[in-house]
Simulated assay, not measured.
Amino acid sequence: MINIILTEDHPIVRNGIKLLLESQQNFCVIGEASNGKETLRLFRNNVIPDVLITDISMDDMDGLQLTEEIRSNYPQVKIMILSMIGQREFISNCFAKGANAYLLKKSSYEEMLFAINHVAKGGRYLCDELSMDLIENMNNIGLDLAGKTRLIDEIELSDRELEVLGLISEGLTNIEIANKLFLSKRTVEGHRQNLINKTKVKNSAALIKYAVKNGLI
């Protein structure tokens, strides 16, 4: 039997999830709450679940604060975030704070049930939709890196030229670049001119524009 506390500030949503969970023979909802403070009160009264399912956006104490509290004081409890928010940075922060799973509220009931069982056994879970977004983003990063590598090979940029290009993009003068790289001013001027010639642009401003457009910096 998997004991569950359900924290959700919308009663209709909470009741719907509760009915779904209680339709499963191996799930038991042992507590409900509308915010983090109410949830902690249940814990302090020794109502401690195997899995806590919590929303994020709630009054008094939100799901992220609740996650930190539970992870610090009840490390054995598995925490599943159920939210409308799909931004990668936010999701990463939830896992960093101690969440074991993250599902969008539009996830299917079947996926939610699978995730609860998986998390209760010690696993971690990210819903299908967010997993696919992550994979597509990684693929795009891979394509960008491959394109950058091809361009560097095609126009034959050296590692030193790329280093100088990066410093030019930061607004450093030839003298400043020379001092930073322990080179002579004339050598830096030569690298700058080589960059302009290889990229076939007219000046340093156009060089930076070209570098940004093609992902070189």
Rank of each mutant, 00 (worst) to 15 (best):
E68P: 12
E156V: 11
E136C: 14
S23F: 07
I135C: 10
Y74D: 09
D55G: 06
G16F: 00
L19Y: 06
G147W: 00
N93T: 14
G122I: 00
I116K: 04
N3Q: 11
I5V: 09
E129G: 03
V51A: 01
I168L: 08
I135S: 12
K200E: 15
V13Y: 09
N203A: 06
I196V: 10
M84P: 12
Q24M: 12
L103W: 00
Y210K: 00
L172M: 04
N197L: 10
G123E: 03
V51G: 03
E156H: 14
C94D: 07
G86Q: 14
V119N: 01
L165A: 02
G142R: 15
F43H: 00
K97Q: 14
L19Q: 06
I91Q: 06
N137W: 15
S131Y: 11
N179L: 11
N93K: 15
G122Q: 03
R192P: 10
D60H: 14
A115Q: 02
I217S: 04
T187D: 11
I168S: 02
D159P: 13
R14C: 02
L21C: 07
R192K: 12
L6E: 04
L183I: 04
V77T: 07
E156M: 12
S72G: 13
E154K: 03
C28V: 15
I81K: 04
C94L: 09
K18T: 06
T54E: 03
K185R: 12
N174F: 10
K198W: 02
I141L: 15
L165W: 06
D133F: 13
D133V: 10
L143N: 14
I30L: 02
H191A: 06
A205F: 15
R124F: 12
L52P: 08
L143I: 13
D60L: 14
P49Q: 02
T149K: 15
Q76A: 13
E176K: 04
T7F: 07
A101Q: 05
E110D: 13
N46Y: 05
E89S: 10
D159K: 12
N179I: 10
L143P: 15
K198M: 04
D62G: 04
S107Q: 04
I70L: 01
K209I: 10
T199H: 06
G166E: 01
G190A: 08
L104H: 08
I53R: 07
T67L: 00
D133W: 11
